[in-house]
Write a protein that binds this DNA or RNA. Sequence first.
DNA 1: GCCAACGTTGGC
DNA 2: GCCAACGTTGGC
Length: 156
Amino acid sequence: MPNYWLMKSEPGVFSIDDLANCPNQTEHWDGVRNYQARNMMRDQMHKGDLVFFYHSSCKNTGIAGIAKVVKEAYPDHTALDPDSAYFDPKSTVDNPRWFMVDIRFVEKFTHLVSLQHLKENPLLKDLPLVQRGSRLSIMPVAEKQWNEILAMVPGR
DNA sequence: GCCAACGTTGGC
DNA sequence: GCCAACGTTGGC
């Protein structure tokens, strides 16, 4: 059984369309700089897990589609690159502080499941995404929540 | 652009 | 270990 996740991305930076247009429709998920998110990604995210791709900080916030984990956590090289916005001087080759996984495009929803609709569904009240003040960029999704959200996808 | 909420840093 | 200051996230 796969685990289920939700990962946020700003579509102005990297959208689900960008993922679909990558070589092999696969890209590494760099730039995670939050320990809670890192720990989940590093310790609990496994090959074959499914991911809701969430568009944040944009006009239409919500879940835009599905991706899947195709490579488990390995060091995030952008932390070692002084020219990267994600550079972290405290991360080293021998002792990497930040990690990333590779994900592959699976499906784009014809219409996204909006944050507003997610918030309105009482069955999703425990999802960190809809909780007040939550800023987690990677979060687990329970199987029941996953199925509930899938049932909310317009036209699916 | 605003700002509430949160995470991190660093002095003590 | 406390906590004030600061930086970031992300919805609105």
